[in-house]
Write a protein that binds this DNA or RNA. Structure first.
Lengths: 230, 230
DNA sequence: TAGATTGTTAATCGATTAACAATC
DNA sequence: TAGATTGTTAATCGATTAACAATC
């Protein structure tokens, strides 16, 4: 089979991409246990996924397995990391040193995910100049210039919703190409840029709804105990 | 049309549930601007979603709109919150006062999401007894008993992967019915319990992959560098 | 070898989007 | 009224799962 480059056209589905980190996580556990090869059915069983789905997901990384045997654990981990670009470090700026920003600054495993937070920014004077988890907090108006000079590609946005777009604009002007957005607001960026918006509460909505279901306390709006025709 | 209670059978898709918080968020903004009614096309435009999809999502809450007019902003917000159970407070325990746990303890808006963290737990002696964002940290071995006595229904799991299952078991024994799991590990729970596992890095994997794409540095494993045009 | 597992194509399933009648 | 918008059914799209030949 010919070498295939994942070019502009054939984009991998977000659903597959989102599962790759959990494969990697589990493979690391297996690796720590000294397991040298692993099959899709084994992975699927541990992660409660269909083995065919696992196989297709892994295939996007370009890994080739051996029939009857499976995949080499080591090679598989490397294929995932290489596919995601996690084996070489991207510099990142973080803006907004609130609770979420502080948590991310304190996370010391980012280097295993190809990410190095090289500076933190805020516009709160009482934070500027302070060191948070070893990162000095800089003034927001240094962001654009510094991003451009350091060729920073990744911006982490942990500001309140109202500030999201204006800070994103600063990042864009500074040449940042990908924004990891934790603000609960959609942001506009030019064509060709990457935005990944995380909403903590989207997952919580699923939990809330399922809990209401199992507790049997779910009623639709406006529905009274008896009949609600109209 | 008959009144319909969303009972055990007809479960709403997770995809729809995950979008409800962003509708709510945007509706709050509109409400703050004094807007009294809103149409699906308006919401869809702001959030970049198909209007029919918005309509279907909102329909799960039981809200009824008026043709040619739309939905009452106020009523729509309430319908979403009521559907998700966010209008009455659930008590929650948080276990694992690391960076993520601390961030969540510091988030003061949970009461708008129907959640009140009433206690924090850790097994680190240097943390026990301390106050973190106003929450005293208790010893882990008090969890099960206290959960049962206080009838706590929600557990927030912010511990390392290795500890996830054993702490989850403590929660289960204490009668907790829903676990919001931030540990990068799948956990096993009995039938009828709710688990919502969040993986911060699943979103980051999407970002990483898209960034590698737009930067043109994506190669599949085993593919050599040469024929990588465009 | 026989059987387990891969890689891949086909079938199924579910979610999204389009179409359209009802309606204020 | 005319036209915009809802509610709902039908069509489309994409992701998941099943089937199966190739293979070590």
């Amino acid at each position: 089979m010919m070498a295939s480059v994942t070019g502009t056209g054939e984009s991998v589905s977000a659903a597959s991409l989102r599962r790759l980190p959990s494969y990697r996580q589990y493979l690391k556990v297996l690796q720590g246990m000294g397991r040298e090869v692993v099959s899709c059915s084994h992975i699927g069983q541990a992660l409660k996924l269909n083995p065919t789905q696992v196989r297709k997901d892994l295939a996007v990384t370009g890994i080739v397995g051996r029939p009857k045997v499976g995949y080499e654990t080591e090679a598989l981990i490397e294929a995932i990391e290489s596919f995601l670009g996690w084996n070489n470090l991207n510099q990142a700026f973080l803006v907004g040193v609130g609770s979420m920003g502080t948590a991310l600054l304190g996370y010391d495993q980012f280097n295993h995910y190809g990410l190095k937070i090289v500076a933190a920014f805020d516009n709160n004077p009482s934070l500027i100049g302070q060191k948070i988890h070893g990162h000095e907090v800089l003034s927001l108006d240094k962001l654009t210039d510094l991003a451009a000079r350091m060729h920073v590609l990744v911006g982490i946005l942990t500001v309140p919703a109202q500030a999201a777009q204006s800070v994103a604009n600063l990042m864009i002007f500074g040449g940042i190409r990908a924004i990891w957005n934790f603000a609960p607001a959609p942001i506009e960026v030019p064509e060709g840029m990457v935005v990944q918006t995380e909403d903590l509460f989207s997952g919580f909505a699923v939990l809330s709804s399922r809990l209401a279901e199992v507790m049997g306390i779910r009623r639709k709006a406006g529905v009274n105990a008896d009949a609600n025709r109209r």
